[in-house]
């Protein structure tokens, strides 16, 4: 018996993607904040990736 994809499967996958985003985003955000140059953090411009080139980050290494 071949099972077809129900609407529920799609809704379920979307719901769980929501769970993934909700749990993972804070981690990604914290990682980005910790790697960004501090003036970008203060100006609230960090979203997903770190901002500021390595040369501006005097705290690196």
């Amino acid at each position: 018996m071949k099972r077809k994809v129900h609407l529920f499967d799609v809704v379920n996958a979307l719901l769980l993607s929501g769970v993934v985003v909700a749990t993972l985003y804070p981690f990604v955000y914290m990682a980005a904040v910790s790697l960004s140059a501090s003036d970008y953090v203060i100006r609230n411009e960090v979203t997903i990736g770190p901002k500021g080139s390595i040369s501006t980050c005097t705290t690196w290494f």
């Binding site: 529920f8 769970v19 993934v20």
Partner: peptide, 25 residues
């Protein structure tokens, strides 16, 4: 609710991925 939703996922790679990510916090 999370366990029941995970139980309904048929694509096991996706299921394991969601599980692992939800343990992180």
């Amino acid at each position: 609710i999370l366990a029941l939703l995970l139980n309904e996922v048929r694509w096991s790679i996706y299921k394991r991925f969601v599980q692992t990510v939800s343990y992180l916090p």
